[in-house]
Amino acid sequence: MPLTTLNQNLHRDLKEAADLLKWATVDLMQAAVRTSGFGQHTDAKELLKIAANHQLIVDRLVGYADEVNAGRIKREAE
C-alpha cells in the first residue's frame, strides 16, 4: 500500500535528519583525529564518545524511517 503524503514526508524527514547526523558524526571523527595529532588525547576521546552517541541516534532514526515505510508508524492529519 502506498504511503500517504504525510507519511512520505515523515519518512523523508527522518532520513534527512539521519543523514545530517551521520555527516556531523564524520566531522566529529575527523576533528578527533586532528585533535589527537596535537597530543590532546582526552579531547579526542570525548569527541569519539559524542560521535558514537550520534551513530546510535542515526541508527534509531533510520529504523523509524523504515517502520514508516513499512506502515508500522503512521502520521495522521490533525
Rank of each mutant, 00 (worst) to 15 (best):
L3E: 06
A18H: 04
V58F: 05
R60E: 11
D27Q: 12
H54M: 09
G37T: 05
G71E: 05
K49A: 14
S36D: 13
V26P: 05
P2H: 07
K49F: 04
Q30C: 10
K15V: 14
P2N: 11
M1F: 02
T42M: 10
D66H: 10
G63S: 13
A32S: 10
T25Y: 01
L14E: 07
L21F: 04
L56G: 15
T5L: 14
M1H: 10
V62L: 13
L14C: 01
I57M: 04
T4A: 04
I57A: 10
A77L: 12
A70W: 03
N53D: 14
L14M: 06
R72Q: 13
R60T: 09
S36E: 15
N69M: 07
Q8M: 10
W23Y: 13
M1D: 02
N9Q: 15
N69R: 07
V58A: 01
N69Y: 11
N7I: 00
K74L: 07
V58T: 08
L14I: 03
D43C: 06
L14T: 00
D13M: 08
H11T: 02
T25D: 09
A31S: 11
L20S: 14
E67A: 13
F38T: 08
H41C: 00
N7P: 02
V68T: 01
H11W: 05
A24S: 12
I57G: 02
Q8H: 07
L48G: 04
E46F: 12
K49S: 13
Y64I: 03
R60I: 05
T25H: 03
A17G: 04
K15Q: 14
W23E: 14
R75W: 09
Q8Y: 08
L61G: 04
S36H: 11
E16T: 12
E16C: 02
